[in-house]
Design a protein around this nucleic acid. Structure first.
Length: 359
DNA sequence: AAGGCGGGGCA
DNA sequence: TGCCCAGCCTT
């Protein structure tokens, strides 16, 4: 099959059956495409849509994003994960304001140089917003191509990835690059899906080698797996007399970087040890201690078993509360801060108890 | 419980 | 260049 045949089949299919009404498909500026591509990097369309709407409503243009408080940016990202994406988005908006007079750069190299944007995302932004001739290679395209060409080997392996880029560039048409880019992403998202691929709806069916060999589900070759370790931690939900909960801001990089989290006690789960730890590390005297069932939060590289500990604080007006990275958080009237998913879950539960929704 | 997802950072 | 890291959702 010639490259031109591949793309024209795909374009015809997209005209008739593609998605044309996603929020970022109207008013396709580089900024709007950029934000959508970053959100879509690890997250499916259905999940992204409400986040995207809220984000664009708050930050209608690059300048308003650049000027925003990072806490507000992270707040609007809460629950999406990979919070470095939000920090990089904010950082890049500032670079664009200062180095490019607020205009999104128009060359591939300049776009790749922005933090949080790699080769595929840069290509997608310029192809979709400006119809520039660049190939993309995201997860959807990798799936379509490994199946179409029956390419063995995990796509994360450098040699496999090189081959995929070659195919991607070879197939991307010089004209209608924007529509083609949308089309191949749509095909991967709606027809050539990871499970239950709808091959009978596929415009490439007749030339698909995986289909011909009845091996569609064997592609892409899955990543070699390894067992991940379990780490344990104790999260303290310390409430003052107004039922506010103590939060601490995490360091700017690493897990949950820049997000607000609960104090993590480095001690045993005995009443005595917990009291002593709070006294020594937080200068807070606590009582009414309740140790709850652990909950498991899983990252790509380890499980985190969190033991929630609820307690009341007696000596609230301690000097340690004046620190900038510490705050009493009102779960009934939450303010704009980024929260890690399990922390948000614990705070929501705490709020439900306080307001009598559950007991 | 396992798998998928794009890019950054460092040896 | 090759590895490790990150966090959520879907299956």
């Amino acid at each position: 099959m010639k490259p031109g045949n591949f793309s024209s089949s795909l374009l015809r299919w997209h005209d008739a059956h593609g998605r044309h009404d996603l929020p970022w498909q109207s008013n396709m500026t580089a900024y709007r495409i950029w934000v959508s591509e970053i959100m879509l990097q690890q997250t499916q369309v259905a999940t992204v849509i409400p986040y995207y709407q809220r984000f664009m409503q708050q930050f209608a243009d690059i300048e308003s994003l650049a000027k925003a408080d990072i806490d507000l940016v992270l707040h609007l990202w809460t629950g999406l994960g990979y919070y470095a994406r939000a920090r990089n988005l904010h950082k890049a908006a500032n670079i664009i304001c200062h180095d490019y007079a607020g205009q999104f750069p128009e060359t591939l190299d300049a776009v790749i140089a922005l933090p949080g944007i790699g080769r595929s995302t840069a290509a997608a932004i310029l192809a979709l917003s400006d119809n520039q001739h660049h190939a993309i290679l995201d997860g959807n395209v990798k799936r379509v191509l490994t199946r179409f060409f029956a390419i063995d080997g995990w796509p994360g392996k450098p040699e496999v990835e090189r081959l995929l880029w070659q195919h991607a560039e070879n197939l991307t048409p010089i004209e209608n690059t924007a529509q083609y880019t949308q089309a191949i992403m749509d095909l991967g998202a709606t027809v050539c899906t990871r499970t239950n691929a709808k091959c009978h709806q596929c415009p490439l069916l007749q030339h698909c080698r995986a289909y011909a060999n009845d091996r569609v589900t064997n592609y892409p070759t899955s990543k070699p797996k390894k067992t991940i370790p379990v780490k344990k931690t104790i999260m303290l939900l310390l409430r003052n007399k107004d039922n506010q909960v103590l939060l601490q801001q995490r360091p700017p990089s690493g897990i949950w970087g820049g997000l607000w989290s609960l104090p993590e006690a480095q001690c045993d789960t005995t009443q005595k040890a917990l009291c002593a730890w709070s006294q020594n590390e937080l200068k807070l005297t606590i009582n009414d201690i309740t140790i709850a069932q652990p909950l498991r939060h899983t990252f790509s590289h380890f499980h985190l078993d969190i033991t929630p500990v609820y307690a009341s604080v007696i000596n609230e007006s301690s000097a340690i509360m004046e620190q900038a990275d510490t705050v009493w958080y009102n779960t009934c009237k939450p303010d704009a801060r980024g929260l890690a998913a399990p922390v948000k879950k614990l705070l929501d539960t705490h709020n439900d108890v306080m307001t009598g929704v559950i007991t």
